[in-house]
């Protein structure tokens, strides 16, 4: 009776660098594609509010999802007091994020589990490269006058070039919020496109800093412009704004990613960052991705978390699954 449609079976790829996804080359600037956008805030928040309550992953499903979450983490340190020492520690953790005995108990000892990337300031790229060795974990560097972005474009581009030259495989750039606030979309497009050119082979994650964008409609428009200009990822926050990644703002961005893909065929990645501290939050984001974009996006090439303390909580939850006992953070090696 029912006319049915077969759905493409897509299994998320295992952890690897820029493997399976055709890179977003961007499209010419065209305001028609986003002029009509009008995001209804209340409706978005209603959907965002019920999403985490419509889905739940428990038991072995939860363990598997949390292991998968680790591969999405851009393990990050972006502090004024970063040193070679703590960056080394971070990289060691990125390579071996979960205690081996736990992986064995989960039947996952033979699967390579490591974080999606490590994310550092430019000055620490070299140390990170030394520490990561041949692990193939990419180094992401924040760039372009992070976190405010308020330095001359020329210097921003120079920063990108230097970071790429130093070995960064991924560049997290920040956009000029004033251009968003004043709706100077063409100028924003040109800036982001210039950054993309400066990135060369390195993948570019464009931070919208949504906590400083006043409406969801502008978040959606900024997402469109960033994707048109060739961003590989769009990212919510620097982690330094008053409001970090939220589910509603992520929902707005994901919907633009979906539309952009339908229009151009390019799959753009998504990275929420800031305030993602526990396993439950990570699961909610993954549910959001699975629901809105599908399993294909549950893939480090298309989805990352910007997080520093999330991994610790995931480790504790995994140990709890294995032992049935609530775990303590001192039982897991520090990042």
């Amino acid at each position: 009776m029912a006319k049915t449609k077969s759905r493409k079976k897509v299994s998320p790829s295992s952890n690897g660098v820029h493997s399976s996804i055709k890179r977003n080359d961007g499209i010419p600037f065209n305001t028609e594609l986003f002029d009509g956008i009008n995001v209804n805030k209340s409706a978005v928040e209603r959907r965002a509010g019920s999403l985490g309550k419509r889905r739940s992953v428990k038991k072995q499903w939860q363990a598997a999802w949390l292991l998968k979450a680790i591969g999405f983490i851009d393990l990050t340190t972006l502090a004024g007091d970063d040193t070679k020492g703590n960056v080394y520690r971070l990289c060691a953790k990125a390579k071996s994020p979960v205690r081996q005995d736990i992986l064995e108990a989960l039947g996952m000892a033979d699967v390579k589990i490591q974080t999606g990337a490590v994310c550092v300031y430019h000055n620490f790229i070299k140390h990170a490269a030394d520490a990561l060795g041949d692990s193939n974990i990419p180094i992401a560097a924040v760039s372009t006058g992070f976190p405010s972005g308020n330095i001359p474009l020329k210097e921003r581009l120079k920063q990108i070039e230097l970071s790429v030259a130093a070995g960064a495989k991924e560049i997290d750039i920040v956009i000029s919020r004033d251009l968003v606030l004043n709706s100077e979309w063409k100028k924003l497009y040109d800036e982001v496109a210039a950054c993309r050119r400066a990135c060369g082979e390195a993948h570019m994650k464009t931070i919208l800093a949504t906590g400083e964008i006043p409406t969801y409609t502008k978040v959606a428009k900024a997402s469109w412009v960033s994707m048109m200009a060739g961003s590989d990822f769009i990212k919510t926050s620097t982690g330094k704004e008053p409001v970090n990644a939220t589910i509603p703002v992520s929902l707005v961005m994901l919907r633009t990613i979906r539309e952009y893909q339908e229009l151009t065929g390019y799959k753009v990645g998504f990275k929420p960052a800031g305030g993602i501290r526990n396993a439950k939050q990570a699961l909610n984001w993954m549910i959001l991705i699975k629901e809105e974009l599908g399993d294909e996006w549950l893939n480090p090439d298309l989805f990352r978390f910007g997080a520093s303390s999330l991994l610790g909580d995931i480790e504790r939850q995994l140990e709890h699954y294995v032992t049935g006992r609530y775990s303590a953070s001192f039982r897991h090696p520090l990042a």
């Binding site: 739940s56 992953v57 499903w61």
Partner: peptide, 16 residues
């Protein structure tokens, strides 16, 4: 289903 299988498919399971 094992953790490894789920890790591959990223399926939902029952959550009674």
């Amino acid at each position: 289903m094992t953790v490894k299988e789920i890790y591959k498919t990223m399926a939902y399971g029952p959550a009674p």
